[in-house]
Amino acid sequence: MKNHFWNMFANIKNGQLAKRSYIHQKRKKLCELFLNILWTEGFIIGYKIEGKNQDNLKIFLKYVENGKPSINNIKAISKPGRRISYSLKQIWKIDSSKTLIIFSTNQGLKTLAECKKLQLGGEPLITIN
């Protein structure tokens, strides 16, 4: 299932490099959770569920001044072949002033700030800046 998640990162990167206003993605629950965080944090304009069976997502990409993508870099931290997990103590040592870090926790996908607030550890999936 996480394969669609990693493909979505590549699609977003490639869509922004090609200056597209939107991209299409297969609808998966994990992808939607991730997109909700991106929308809340202001990295995308939004997304819409499409298709006959409501099985596709149309993701609207966001650009800032001079047509630069709002997402400069998406980088995987914990990968399927190399899992990493952070305890609550380790999470408090991370400086998140310049990047958004998304964690997979036992309560779903959370940002670093949410993990600190909810006192949760977890698996850091990606950084975005």
Rank of each mutant, 00 (worst) to 15 (best):
C115W: 00
L88P: 00
W39E: 12
Q119A: 14
N106K: 04
Y22L: 04
T99R: 15
C115T: 00
F5I: 04
F9Q: 13
T111P: 02
K28I: 06
W39I: 06
K75N: 09
Q25M: 11
I126C: 06
N7Y: 10
K52C: 04
P69R: 00
Q25P: 01
Q54K: 15
K62P: 06
G81M: 04
S87P: 01
I44T: 06
G42V: 04
K98Y: 12
G81R: 02
F9W: 14
I37D: 01
K19W: 03
T99F: 07
N73L: 08
N3E: 14
N129G: 10
G81V: 02
K89P: 02
E114D: 10
L33I: 08
L118I: 06
Q107S: 09
Q16N: 13
D95E: 14
C31L: 13
T111N: 08
G122I: 01
I74H: 12
K89F: 04
K116Y: 05
H4M: 10
N66H: 11
N3D: 15
K93R: 15
P80K: 06
K13H: 15
I44H: 14
I77Q: 04
P69K: 00
S104A: 07
Y47V: 06
K19E: 10
K98R: 15
N7D: 11
G67E: 09
N11A: 11
R20T: 10
Q119P: 02
D95C: 08
L38E: 05
K29V: 13
Q90G: 00
T40S: 14
L88I: 09
K52P: 02
Q54L: 14
T105R: 01
N106R: 04
K75R: 12
L118G: 09
F103T: 00
C31Y: 07
W92I: 12
K28W: 09
G67L: 07
I71N: 05
M8Y: 13
N3S: 12
I71R: 05
L17E: 12
I74L: 13
L38P: 03
I45W: 15
S104L: 01
F34V: 03
S96W: 12
N56W: 15
N72Y: 10
I59N: 04
W6T: 04
I23W: 11
E41W: 10
G42F: 07
I91K: 00
N36T: 10
G15T: 06
T40I: 11
I12K: 09
I101E: 01
L57S: 04
S85Q: 02
Y47C: 02
K93V: 02
K68C: 08
I91T: 02
Q16L: 05
I71D: 04
T40W: 13
K117T: 14
G51M: 08
G15D: 04
L100F: 12
K117W: 06
R27G: 03
S96T: 11
I84Y: 05
T127D: 10
I84K: 05
R20L: 07
D55N: 13
R83W: 05
P69Q: 01
Q119K: 14
W6L: 09
I59K: 12
I91D: 00
S104I: 00
E114P: 00
G46Q: 12
I102E: 00
N129I: 09
S97Q: 13
